[in-house]
Computed example of a mutant assay.
Amino acid sequence: MRLSTGLISFILILLFSCQSKTGKENLSEKSEQKISVFAAASLADVMSKLAKEYQTKSGVKVALNFASSGTLARQMQEGATPGIYLSASPRWMKFACQDGSADSTVCFPVARNSLVAVVPTNSRIDTLPISPTLDFPNSFNGRLAIGDPAHVPAGQYAAEALKSLGCFKLLQPRFLKTKDVRSALMVVELGECEMGIVYATDAMKSKKVRAVGVFPESLHQPIEYWAAKGKHGGSTADSLLKYLHSAEADYIWKKFGFKTIAEPRKSVTNK
Rank of each mutant, 00 (worst) to 15 (best):
A96Q: 05
L86N: 04
M76T: 08
D99H: 05
V181F: 01
L171K: 00
K207I: 09
R91S: 14
V106C: 12
H151M: 10
A262G: 06
V60Y: 04
L219C: 06
H151I: 13
S246W: 03
N141R: 09
G147C: 01
D45V: 11
T56R: 06
R74G: 09
A227Q: 10
N65L: 11
V152L: 03
S246R: 03
G257F: 04
P109L: 03
A96H: 07
V60C: 02
A39S: 15
A80D: 15
S58G: 06
L86F: 04
P132E: 05
R74V: 15
L115V: 05
V212G: 01
Y251N: 11
D250E: 14
V119A: 05
E53F: 02
P264I: 08
A159T: 13
T71F: 11
R174H: 13
T127H: 07
M93P: 05
G233F: 05
K254V: 03
L165T: 06
Y85M: 11
R112I: 08
A249L: 01
W92F: 15
L185N: 03
G234Y: 13
S239V: 06
I11S: 10
P149Y: 05
L171Y: 04
Y225R: 02
E29V: 14
H245L: 09
G234T: 06
K207M: 08
L115M: 00
A111S: 11
P173E: 04
A44F: 10
D250V: 04
N113A: 09
V118I: 14
G23N: 14
L86K: 02
H232E: 15
V209C: 01
L144T: 03
K30P: 00
Q98T: 12
T81L: 08
A117S: 09
A150Q: 09
S183N: 11
E160R: 00
Q77E: 15
I261Q: 01
K21D: 12
K94W: 02
P109S: 03
R265C: 08
P173A: 10
L115E: 04
K242W: 03
T105C: 03
S164W: 01
S164I: 01
Q19Y: 14
L128H: 02
S87R: 00
M186L: 13
G79A: 12
S267Q: 04
F175I: 05
M195S: 03
E160T: 00
F215I: 01
K94L: 08
D250P: 04
P173G: 06
P82L: 10
K266D: 10
N122K: 10
G142W: 06
E25Q: 13
I11V: 15
A117N: 07
L15M: 14
K259S: 13
K242P: 04
I8D: 06
I252H: 01
R124S: 14
S20Q: 11
S69C: 04
V60R: 06
G100F: 12
F136I: 06
A80N: 11
L128P: 00
E194S: 08
D126T: 15
P90L: 05
V187I: 15
E192H: 10
T201G: 02
L50P: 09
L86W: 02
S206V: 07
